[in-house]
Structures are given as structure tokens and as C-alpha cells.
Simulated assay, not measured.
Amino acid sequence: METHSFVSCSFILALVFLMICKGISGSTFTFKNRCDYMVWPGILSSAGSTPLDSTGFDLSPGESRSFQASPGWSGRFWGRTGCTFDANGQGSCATGDCGSNQISCNGAGATPPATLAEFTIGSSSGTNSQDFYDVSLVDGYNLPMAVDASGGTGACGTTGCVTDLNRMCPSELQTGDGQACKSACEAFGNPEYCCSGSFGSPDTCRPSVYSEIFKSACPRSYSYAYDDATSTFTCTGADYTITFCPGSTSQKSSRDPSGTATNASPVLPKAPEPEDDPNGSSWLPSFAIGGSSRRIPNNALTWTIISFFVFCFSQL
């Protein structure tokens, strides 16, 4: 009888655990500014996605801010720089401007060139539980950015571009004041650079000398439209941190214990790369693999487990 009660309780506990896992979902996006200047992040939710609580805001050096995204959300983030807004919140930005004339972008996207972080969050139901994310330079570059996944399962690699591409931007791609670097598509409009027309497929659109410059400096970022194999990352049940100027030595987090700025070159944390697998496939995104639901708050899960164990033992 005691064995039967224990088995029954264990089954119920497992069932409740799965129900909680299924019921709590979504991802938290945390934005951090490690630049030594103000950044105005922009947020664009895809059509059909529940919008986040903001479409644009200011982020001072050293400041962070978080937003909750619902299951199935997709969209993009970027940083605006050199912005000037008046007391009424009206104005514009030197790079990444969304043309809204406000701090909020109100459904408008970034004006190229701009470094973009793109996400598709998995659904809490069905087979599409896996998240997909990348950092894209297809629309050019304006500031360093890194995306880090935490608490998820799967490859969950860190991606982004920590190199200051503005310093190595070819003159023909530079904006007038050198604050951003255009893509070859935007600069020249040629189909072979834009992957359009007869070049509109992976077989016909190949890396250009310009996209190779971006790829060499930022190997985990999209450098042109069909750069999927080495640029798309996947994870399940994670929260994400988007850091502007992740390699900056001007902030406390990048200083040594004495408070003196270090001279070490900024690097992204180790992420799986093609050479980790002789076949080059150990970290490639798998569109067929499912995964678990979102993480469960520790307190809720702990008290649920304790309550059921108390109930179970009282039945023995």
C-alpha cells in the first residue's frame, strides 16, 4: 500500500512539474550599455507578434533594462547613436534612426547602416519550441553588439560583433562622418551585392570582397543575405542579453580588480564553431529538433516540490 502511494505521488508530482513547465513560457531580453556614450535601443516586433513594452528608449552608459517577450515573438533590436531629442522627446539620431522623430520607434525599423539583433522565440505549444537568433551586418554596421543566451538548453552560443568596424570600413562604404559603415548593397545597389534579381538564391549570390571584410572581423555575424550556415544560432528555453560595446574597457565590468582599464583585446565567449566537428555540423541550427518549455522560477518550483513531498509522505 505504501509503495503504491509513493508511486502514485511520484507520478502526480511529475505530471504537475510538466504542467508548470508548459504553462510558464516566454523569454526575457535584457539590454546592457557598456559603451562610454548614450545608446538609444530600437525595437521592432514582427507582424503578428505581441509587441514588447517599448519600441525605443534611452540607455545611459552602464545602465541595463529588461523586457518580457511572449512565446512565438519575433523581431529585431538595434542601437541608435548620436541622438538629439528635445524636452518633448522629439528629435533624430545620427545612426540607426527609425524616422519616427521620437524616442519611441512606433513600429518603424532602423535606417541603414545599423547592427541588428534578430530573434524568433519558440512557441510554448507544438513543435516550434526552439529559438533562433543572430546578429546581422546585412544592413551595415554602426556599433559593436553581442547576444548571450542564459538558462537554455542546446548549443546556445554567444554571437555578435565586438570589433569596431567603423575603424576598418572601406572609404566607399563609410558614412559622411565615419560613424557607421554601409553594406555594399546600400552603397552600390548592385544585384550581386543585394542578392536580388538573378542573384536571388544561395547558389547565385556569393560572398563579396566587402562582405568578406565584415565576416573576417565578425565571423559569427551575418555578412550577406545567405550567410546562414555560420551565423544562425539556436537555443531552447533561454533568456537573452543584448550588450552594446561588449568589449568596451571604459566600464567597470571590463576593468581589472584595481580599477585600471585592461589592454586585452575584446573577445566573445567560446561558442561552438565548425572546426569543433570534423563534419562542421556540431553547432549548425537544426530546424527539426524540439526542446523543453521555458524555465521555471526557482521559488515556485521549489515550493511545489516540497508541498507534494509533504503530501506524499503523509499518505505513507
Rank of each mutant, 00 (worst) to 15 (best):
C9P: 01
C9E: 12
S10N: 13
S10M: 13
F11V: 11
I12F: 12
L13M: 15
L13E: 11
A14C: 12
V16P: 04
L18N: 10
C21K: 10
C21A: 14
K22H: 14
K22Q: 14
K22F: 12
G23E: 06
I24E: 05
I24Q: 09
S25E: 11
S25Y: 09
G26Q: 01
S27R: 02
T28S: 08
T28G: 02
F29V: 00
F31D: 00
F31L: 15
N33C: 05
N33M: 08
N33R: 05
N33F: 02
N33Q: 05
R34A: 06
R34Y: 10
C35F: 06
D36P: 07
Y37Q: 14
M38H: 10
W40G: 00
W40T: 03
W40V: 00
P41G: 02
G42S: 10
G42K: 04
I43H: 01
S45Q: 06
A47R: 09
G48D: 08
G48T: 07
G48W: 08
S49N: 04
S49I: 04
T50H: 04
P51W: 04
L52F: 05
S54Y: 01
G56R: 00
F57K: 03
D58H: 13
D58E: 13
P61A: 08
P61K: 07
P61E: 09
F67L: 13
A69E: 00
S70D: 07
S70N: 02
P71G: 09
G72L: 07
G72M: 10
G72V: 07
W73Q: 01
S74F: 05
G75H: 06
F77V: 03
F77H: 11
C83I: 10
C83N: 09
D86T: 08
N88L: 13
N88E: 15
G89N: 11
G89I: 03
Q90L: 01
G91P: 09
A94D: 13
G99E: 02
G99Y: 05
G99C: 12
N101R: 05
S104F: 03
S104E: 15
C105Q: 03
N106P: 02
G107Q: 06
A108R: 15
A108V: 00
A108F: 01
A108G: 04
G109W: 07
G109V: 05
G109M: 06
G109E: 08
T111Q: 14
P112C: 11
P113H: 04
P113V: 09
A114G: 10
A114I: 12
T115E: 10
L116P: 10
L116K: 08
L116G: 07
A117T: 14
A117W: 08
A117S: 15
F119S: 03
G122V: 06
S124C: 06
G126F: 05
G126V: 09
G126T: 08
Q130F: 10
D131T: 02
F132K: 00
Y133S: 02
D134N: 15
V135F: 14
L137D: 00
G140P: 03
N142Q: 13
N142L: 14
